[in-house]
Structures are given as structure tokens and as C-alpha cells.
């Protein structure tokens, strides 16, 4: 991932009306508080990223909530395994931690992705999960911007899925730029 790739990723997201912010590992928890809206629920990120600094404990985000809590939550926080710069897409995993539910049954989806996982284009992203699928039989959702529909006479953001998407890009060491 180059600076140019990240900048393409950000402008693609902005065109989708998704917002983007950058933070390094150390500042993550404070940063997160600024981008979630209550009540926030989430999937433990350390499992996606294998990094204890990214734990959601000691944040306002309720990890692994009960289903009834999820239904009334405003924000859902999950990790993405990949980003796709050309499209502003995020590759969401579908696991037994219920990330599919947490990213879908909320109004605001906050997605965390590591800068190094932002692929330049669709081809490299598909190559990455193709190999993985054959190995693990896994599933993924390429999510691009908020859910939307044009079925009601005009384009509306927020159909069955989230109305808002915010992407937190995790940089290593120095962060690119603030929100």
C-alpha cells in the first residue's frame, strides 16, 4: 500500500459519503470514542488483527452484545480484512463472532482496517480472498458505502443496512492526517 493508494481509497470513500479517519495503534481507543455514537456495540478486534492494543475493552463499545441490544444499538464496530482503494470497498469477514450481524443491523457502521491491508485494486483483493476461500471455506462481503436503494422513486441511503459508514484506517507509527 502506497500513500497514493491510501489517498485513492479515501477519495473513493468520500464519493460514497463515507467518512475516513486515521490513527495509529496507541491512540486507537481515544480515537474510537470520537467516531462512535451511543449505544455502540462491536466485535472484538484483537481477533481480526491479533493486536492487544486494538482491544475494545475499556471503551464505550459493548463487545458481543445480546441480540436485543444489537437491535436497538446505533453504532456497530467491526474490523475489515481488506480495503480496496479503487472502489472505497471494505472486505468484511463473516465469522462465528457475528460480525455480519453487528455490521448490518445498525444505523452507523464503524469499520476498522489496517493501512497495510488496503489493496490497490479489485484484482489483487480477489486474488487475496480466493486463495483464502479455497483453504478455509470462508465467506466475505465486499461492502462499499452505506446500504442504499432507488426503489422508492429516488436514491435513498440506508435501506436494510447501515445509513452511515465511517472508516478508521490504522496506520503504523505516525498517522497520516487527523479527521
Amino acid at each position: 500500500m502506497s500513500a497514493a493508494t491510501l489517498s485513492r481509497f479515501e477519495s473513493a470513500l468520500n464519493e460514497l459519503d463515507a467518512t475516513v479517519s486515521y490513527v495509529d495503534g496507541d491512540g486507537f481507543r481515544d480515537h474510537l470514542e470520537g467516531v462512535v455514537q451511543p449505544h455502540a456495540v462491536g466485535v472484538a478486534l484483537e481477533e481480526t488483527f491479533d493486536d492487544p492494543a486494538l482491544s475494545l475493552t475499556e471503551t464505550s463499545v459493548e463487545v458481543d452484545p445480546a441480540p436485543a441490544t444489537l437491535r436497538t444499538a446505533k453504532t456497530g464496530v467491526t474490523g475489515a480484512s481488506l480495503g480496496i482503494a479503487d472502489y472505497g470497498s471494505l472486505v468484511l469477514t463473516v465469522t462465528d463472532r457475528a460480525s455480519e450481524l453487528v455490521s448490518l443491523f445498525v444505523e452507523r457502521h464503524v469499520v476498522v482496517v489496517r493501512a497495510e491491508d488496503v489493496e490497490a485494486d479489485m484484482e489483487s483483493a480477489v486474488d487475496a480472498f480466493g486463495a483464502e476461500f479455497r483453504e478455509t471455506g470462508g465467506s466475505a462481503v465486499i461492502a462499499t458505502g452505506p446500504s442504499s436503494t432507488a426503489d422508492m422513486g429516488a436514491l435513498v441511503k440506508g435501506a436494510h443496512g447501515p445509513r452511515e459508514v465511517h472508516v478508521v484506517v490504522l496506520t503504523e507509527g505516525e498517522s497520516a492526517e487527523g479527521e
Binding site: D64, P65, A66, P67, A68, T69, L70, R71, Y87, S89, V94, T95, D96, R97, A98, E100, L101, V102, F129, F133, G137, G138, S139, A140, V141, I142, A143, T144, G145, P146, S147, S148, G161
Partner: peptide, 30 residues
Amino acid sequence: DITSYVSLLTPPVDTPVVDFGDETTPLSEF
């Protein structure tokens, strides 16, 4: 350029089958 969701599902998927009325059991325990 791309639709909001391209789901690539290898069913049956691993997402827990939850009771949406349940107020206590964590999602991942279903």
C-alpha cells in the same frame, strides 16, 4: 461502479443463528 454489497458466501455461513428477542445471551454464544 460497484453496488453496496457483493456478498461472497460459502454456505452454510458461520454467522450465529440468534434469537433476536434474547436480552442476555451474547451473540457469539449462539
